[in-house]
Structures are given as structure tokens and as C-alpha cells.
């Protein structure tokens, strides 16, 4: 799930200062779970724009999916044609997809934080950095690239303090946790398997995944 944070409302309004007629767009998937772009937040944003004309509010199932956005915006075609700007309570991918689908000025109302694991509502944790070279099978399913602040792929680093991380002293060093888990599993030989540096020549932004037609 993509974890997002709300931007300050005044900042959002400043970016939409030239827009007199707006549409508020929410996301009923990730941003709804984060309570940054659900129906309640859409309503709050509409109230914040009460000094303008709010032509419509809409919650799209996955605004980052251009097919779904295209379909759902057809429900408000007239309002869309009349709108000066769309206020997107979505992740960055969603905001850009909405921009491409509508051709309208879009103001991003959220900051995109990370791809998160959901423990329960309000407890989201980053577990994957989508580095493109996954070593989870050698690290007892604990990702050191993400769970180590230094992203050390062959750890621990020289800063480990007892069992604790040098950076977050209240947390266990992930390489200490990997060592413990591998020991429990009788797989300690995996601990010193060498992991080469990430090949960034394969990881330039923007990444794409395009299926070839067979």
C-alpha cells in the first residue's frame, strides 16, 4: 500500500489560488486507508475550499490506474469540462494519472511517503524499498536495504551497539535480527553470502514494466 501524508491545507489552496471552480478527487484505496484521501478527507477538503465553487467531489477506486480514472471521470464530464483545477487527495502516481487522463490542472494535496505494510489502521511500516534486486531469500525475509538506515546489504555495519542499531538506538539492528532468525532456522551459512552492490544501471528512474505482446 502507498502511504501518504496530508499537505498543509493553506499550501494546497495557495497552489490552487488561480482556480475558482474546483473538483475534489479522493482515492478509495490506499489514501482512504491512510485517512488522507477517503470520503471524510474529501469532504474536509471541500469545506476548506468553500470560498471557491466546488463543482463536484469524487472518490476513485484506484486513481493511479488510468483505465479506472478515465471510466470514473465520465460520471462528472460536465463538471470536469467546467473546472479550473482538480484537487487530488491521492499519491503522486494518482495525481499524475489524473492529470494525464483529464488534461486539467491538478493540485497534489498529499505527500507520498513509502510503500507500506499495514499492521492495522494507523500502523504502517516500510518493509520494501523496491530496489529491484531482492535478497529476502538470503536474509530470512528481513529486508536490510529497508530496515537498515544505511541500507547495508552485508552487515552489520561498524556502528552496531550491542544488539541495537547505531541510528535508532531503541531498535534492534536488522542484521542482529537476521543473524538470530538464521540461527534459529539452522541456516547461518546464509549470513555471510556476499551480496554485490545494486546495479543502478538497471534502476534508473523512471522505471517501467511493459509486457511484450506474444
Amino acid at each position: 500500500m502507498i502511504v501518504t501524508r496530508k499537505k498543509d491545507v493553506e499550501t494546497v489552496k495557495k497552489h490552487a489560488s488561480k482556480a475558482r471552480k474546483v473538483i475534489i478527487v479522493g482515492c478509495s484505496e490506499c489514501a482512504a486507508i491512510c485517512r488522507t484521501g477517503g470520503s471524510e478527507q474529501v469532504r474536509e477538503m471541500a469545506e476548506a475550499f468553500s470560498d471557491r465553487e466546488v463543482l463536484a467531489t469524487i472518490s476513485i477506486e484506484s486513481p493511479c490506474d488510468k483505465r479506472i480514472s478515465t471510466r470514473d471521470f465520465k460520471r462528472i464530464e460536465e463538471e470536469l469540462a467546467d473546472a479550473d483545477a482538480l484537487i487530488a487527495l491521492t499519491c503522486g502516481s494518482g495525481a499524475q494519472a489524473i492529470s494525464e487522463v483529464t488534461g486539467k490542472r491538478v493540485v497534489a494535496a498529499l505527500d507520498t511517503d513509502f510503500v507500506g505494510m499495514v499492521e492495522r489502521l494507523g500502523r504502517f511500516y516500510e518493509r520494501c524499498s523496491h530496489c529491484g534486486e531482492c535478497i529476502l531469500n538470503e536474509t530470512a525475509l528481513l529486508c536490510p536495504v529497508t530496515l537498515c538506515p544505511k541500507g547495508v546489504r552485508n552487515g552489520p555495519c561498524d556502528g552496531i551497539k550491542g544488539t541495537a542499531c547505531e541510528v535508532y538506538e531503541d531498535r534492534e539492528c536488522v542484521w542482529h535480527a537476521i543473524h538470530s532468525r538464521l540461527t534459529e532456522r539452522g541456516e547461518l551459512e546464509a549470513f555471510t553470502v556476499y551480496h554485490a552492490p545494486v546495479d543502478w544501471s538497471e534502476c534508473h528512474s523512471p522505471k517501467e514494466a511493459v509486457w511484450e505482446r506474444s
Binding site: P149, K150, G155, G159, E166, P197
Partner: peptide
């Protein structure tokens, strides 16, 4: 060869750890 303290200066720069000590 050392890794270096994570946060220094004003703490706002993006820390680069392209290689770890083994690498």
C-alpha cells in the same frame, strides 16, 4: 574502511550509502 555516522551536518542531506564495508 568505515561506514560513517549516519546523520551529520544539519542532518537534512540525503545520506548516500552506495557500498557497504564488505563491498
Amino acid at each position: 574502511l568505515a561506514s560513517g555516522i549516519f546523520s551529520s551536518g544539519d542532518g537534512k542531506a540525503r545520506p548516500v550509502y552506495d557500498l557497504d564495508q564488505a563491498q
